[in-house]
Design a protein around this nucleic acid. Structure first.
Length: 921
RNA sequence: GGGUGCUUAGCUCAGCUGGAAGAGCAUCGCCCUUACAAGGCGAGGGUCGGCGGUUCGAGCCCGUCAGCACCCACCA
């Protein structure tokens, strides 16, 4: 074995073998366990968030697979309508072409090509991460069978009246020229102005002042509203105004919606370009005047002077014109929420169009109930509240998009505009009994990407066909995802899963935090702070990293800043850490529900951990290779001790896994492997293995191996590669048959009942460690070289101390570097010694000629202070009658023991101090 | 305007049903001791955001304030 762990040499080899041998596919036996991979968008490559998520899913999947479950981790990718169309359009643009040039078919062909390439990259990344997905069942949301599921759902919902086409205001992205759902619009506060405009009364008797943040929409005004109880305007309700610039006559209406306190208390009403005004317009039967073209330029419904102008150009012009007419009362600075499309960043306009909608209320109700009655649980549970909040206010879902890339809506129109819905044109005709001569044209639009995503838990399993996969793996077990798509995806899967499968799509929704950079910033390409998980695995030179982060930017002027920040943060680039270290780091960071600052320091610590484990394995192999290894009839006490510790660790890991606490599971593993197995047990074995007791040696060798082997299996779900590599090397020694650790059984903890002798073992070993550490501390604090052999004296111990010392004499001597020791009489002068206390036992090191008296006095003084303060604490507690009366007996008892111990320690230390002090001068 | 989460060692974070504050990294000593210098052995470092309350006892429960982060929302 190499002297240090080299992940590069082994990872890909094992993955390839696992995949080739079909280990990832469901075994067909045992209880079903299924995780649906949230299909990544085919737009690009996996980022840290994906890698984090994949680690969690893979750990859970491997764990359940090893427990004997029939395990399916369903992989796939999402066509990501808008996002992908944009990426490909941008690519075309760079080549000086446009999608219109290619035409619809040509363009979608181009997107398919892109999808192949990008999808491959994503799958390659997942392999590098060790993801044990069942590749044979990989799906893409636009595969034919999934598309069929989409059409089937559409038709059925349409037939039930749950999908309808309607003309109403939608969020319109004028750059992409498509409708968006409410979720795809993000509002942010921006600086703007509040224009106060005078609207003259039609009868010439004065005017009304309206305040608006959008003066250009006044061209579409069809009323001005005031509050019905506003005394200032009572007399004007029902009167008419002359709308400036357009010179139309519009009424003054009264509506409760108006806030008297805001602005002038008069609101211009533009039903076709504002969601509130739309509602008011409906209440008052106002006409709708659409003044925008699809690109948000003004259309033929406005005065000629403004036609064809973009809305914001028109705004400037209108404001200027109003000013000239003396109708601009004043302009205030004003902060307002600006809605933007989440992909294009374009300012979204409320726009009157025909779109397809899903009627949500009938679907939402059972979906709320499913979480309410516990058929679905959120982990952590507080996310269910977020879910309820949204579900209770949810509105109909606009599902049509004016794009080319996606599932084309399975609806056809005839020349009269009648709608025919069907799985395909033939089906639509058949359902309506149309003759072949009846001309039909298919709807040009495609469906919202999330429509197909919502079906993912059953469409990937073969629905609408009934089949064993569907039966076995629906509902899936756990959904692992980020909070950012609870609304987009989780809620919709629940609604449609319940609707079409009559059962929830998953039992548990595990919500994880967001991976941020070291400064707590969200990672994004535009900020130039993204890390490619593969770069953490393989490492990357600084120059390459800079190059990667600064190329292909939407805002190239950011490049120098990004470069500088990158050079500061990673002056030496990023070293190769390997997949297991990355996964272990993710697991350790997977605490419930909070965002995660990615810390390279932790990454490094975990790489070191891999190396530690690697070297422990080297040691074990060195001791066992070529030996006959058999289970010992009489394992020694340190063997039994480490086995007990190991079982405790296994039990803890198991329960942490069950509660999705991978952070705690990884911590328990880390501590056992490093702090128990390596730091103590391996050291304990050395004197035995160097000794002559063949039986003890055999027992030790076996324990070394079997503890390592069991630990590797416990570790495997989180660190699949190193565990496999080492396991393969020790498998034969233990006579284990089996081709891979990933097919072995996950360890089952055997916890000793407390009546068994193992319970006393812990105390014995604690004693042993205390004695060794006492001497080590004396060495370190008094600057005695670690390797220098010392003599030790023992004084005033109990029978048990004598017994233990005798039994662990070899270990003690070697680990504490003691060449000889003896028991001395109580009355013996120990002035020339440094002391360590272990219970009643005084461990003494003669320091004549080794160190100066003053240094030891300082050391004693420090110990005394600490012992005294602890004694005082215990005494004061026990002196408090209320404490003794109210606290549970065990707590009071504990306090009494502490008092005794510390009192005894103080006495001993004082005595030692006095003796030593007498040596002064 | 509603809602959620966070505030613990210099940094990144654990801390289970309230019973003497933990890890990794960083820092300071001493060591190349034949598994590992990506290491070993030791050490230092915290009035657990502020205030108030409940309790024999609070990092943990309650109230309140402050700061940070995020989500949702139609005040023109």
């Amino acid at each position: 074995m190499d002297k240090s762990y080299n992940p590069r040499a082994i990872e890909q080899r094992w993955y390839q073998q696992w995949e080739e041998r079909g280990y990832f596919a469901p075994s067909g036996q045992g209880e079903s366990f299924c995780i649906m991979l949230p299909p990544p968008n085919v737009t690009g490559s996996l980022h840290m968030g994906h890698a984090f998520q994949d680690t969690i899913m893979d750990a859970l999947t491997r764990w359940r697979r090893m427990k004997g479950d029939n395990t399916l981790w369903q992989p796939g990718t999402d066509h990501a309508g808008i996002a992908t169309q944009m990426v490909v359009e941008r690519k075309l643009q760079a080549e000086g072409r446009s999608r219109h040039e290619l035409g619809r078919e040509g363009f979608t062909d181009a997107v398919w090509q892109w999808k192949e390439q990008s999808g491959d990259a994503i799958n390659g990344q997942m392999r590098r991460l060790g993801a044990s997905v069942d590749w044979s069942s990989h799906r893409f949301t636009m595969d034919e069978d999934l598309s069929h599921a989409v059409r089937t759902v559409f038709v059925r919902l349409f037939d039930e009246g749950l999908i309808y086409r309607g003309k109403r205001l939608v969020n319109w992205d004028p750059v992409l020229r498509t409708a968006l759902s409410d979720l795809e619009v993000l509002s942010e506060e921006e600086k703007g102005k509040l224009w106060h405009i005078r609207y003259p009364l039609a009868n010439g008797n004065g005017d009304l002042v309206v305040a608006t943040t959008r003066p250009e929409t006044m061209l579409g005004d069809t009323a001005v509203a005031v509050h019905p109880e506003d005394e200032r305007y009572q007399h004007l309700i029902g009167k008419e105004l002359c709308l400036p610039l357009s010179n139309r006559i519009i009424p003054v209406i009264a509506d409760e919606y108006v806030d008297r306190e805001f602005g002038s208390g008069c609101v211009k009403i533009t039903p076709a370009h504002d969601f509130n005004d739309y509602d008011i317009g409906k209440r008052h039967n106002l006409p709708l005047i659409n003044i925008l073209n699809p690109d948000a330029s003004l259309n033929e419904n406005v005065p000629e002077a403004y036609r064809g102008m973009d809305r914001f150009k028109a705004r400037a012009r209108i404001v200027a014109d109003l000013e000239q007419l003396g109708l601009l009362e004043r302009v205030d600075d004003h902060h307002l929420m600006i809605p933007r499309g989440d992909r294009s960043q374009a300012i979204v306009e409320p726009y009157l169009t025909d779109q397809w909608y899903v009627k949500i209320a009938p679907l939402a109700e059972p979906a709320i109930a499913a979480v309410n009655d516990g058929r679905i649980t959120f982990v952590p549970s507080n996310w269910s509240r977020t879910y309820f909040d949204w579900m209770n206010r949810i509105e109909d879902w606009c599902i049509s998009r004016q794009l080319w890339w996606g599932h084309r809506i399975p609806a056809w129109y005839d020349e009269q505009g009648a709608i025919y819905v069907g799985l395909d044109e033939q089906d639509a005709r058949q359902r309506a009994g149309l003759t072949p001569e009846h001309a039909l044209n298919q709807d040009e639009d495609v469906l919202d990407t999330w429509f197909s995503s919502a079906l993912w838990p059953f469409s990937t399993l073969g629905w609408p066909e009934e089949g064993t996969r569907l039966q076995q793996f629906y509902p899936s077990s756990v959904l692992v995802t980020g909070f950012d798509i609870i609304f987009f995806w989780v809620a919709r899967m629940i609604m449609l899963g319940l609707k079409f499968m009559h059962d929830v799509p998953f039992r548990t929704v595990y919500i994880h935090g967001l991976i941020r950079d070291g400064q707590g910033q969200k990672m994004s390409k535009s900020k130039g702070n993204v890390l490619d998980p593969i770069d953490l695995i393989d490492g990357i030179e600084l120059e390459d990293l800079v190059q990667k982060r600064t190329s292909g930017l939407m805002q190239p002027h950011m490049a120098p800043m990004i470069e500088k920040a990158t050079r500061t943060e990673f002056p030496a680039g990023i070293p190769a850490f390997g997949t297991d270290a990355l996964r272990f780091t993710f697991a350790g960071l997977a605490t419930t529900g909070r965002d995660i600052r990615f810390d390279l320091g932790r990454m490094e610590g975990n790489r070191n951990f891999c190396n530690k484990l690697w070297n422990a394995a080297r040691f074990v192999l060195l001791q066992t290779e070529g030996q006959r290894i058999a289970a010992a009839e009489q394992p020694g006490s340190v063997d039994r001790w480490v086995l007990a510790r190991m079982h405790r660790m296994v039990a803890a890991v198991e329960s942490h896994f069950a509660e999705f606490r991978l952070d705690l599971a990884s911590q328990v593993l880390y501590e056992f492997i490093w702090n128990e197995y390596c730091d103590w047990y391996l050291e304990f074995t050395k004197p035995v293995l160097q000794g002559t007791d063949e039986q003890a040696k055999a027992a030790t060798r076996h324990t070394l191996l079997s503890v390592l082997e069991t630990t590797l299996r416990t570790l495997h779900p989180i660190m699949p590669f190193i565990s496999e590599e080492i396991w393969q090397r020790i498998r034969d020694l233990l006579g284990i048959s089996g081709d891979s650790i990933m097919l072995q059984q996950f360890p089952r903890a055997q916890l000793p009942a407390c009546a068994e002798p193992e319970c006393g073992l812990d105390q014995e070993i604690d004693w042993l460690r205390d004695v060794i550490q006492g001497i080590r501390r004396i060495r370190a604090e008094l600057n005695v070289a670690p390797g220098k052999p010392l003599q030790a004296l023992f004084q005033s111990g109990s029978e048990r101390d004598r017994d233990l010392l005798q039994r662990y004499s070899d270990i003690f001597s070697q680990l504490a570097r003691i060449e000889s020791y003896e028991w001395i009489d109580e009355s013996r002068d120990t002035a020339q010694c440094a002391v360590a206390l272990v219970g009643d036992l005084k461990v003494l090191v003669p320091l004549k000629g080794l160190v100066d008296v003053e240094a030891e006095l300082v050391r004693l003084r420090k110990q005394l202070d600490s012992e005294r303060s602890m004694l005082a604490k215990a005494e004061s507690k026990l002196a408090d009658r209320r404490f003794v009366k109210n606290a549970p007996d065990t707590v009071v008892e504990q306090e009494k023991e502490r008092k005794v111990t510390h009192a005894s320690n103080v006495a001993k230390l004082q005595d030692q101090y006095r003796q030593l002090e007498s040596l002064r001068d």
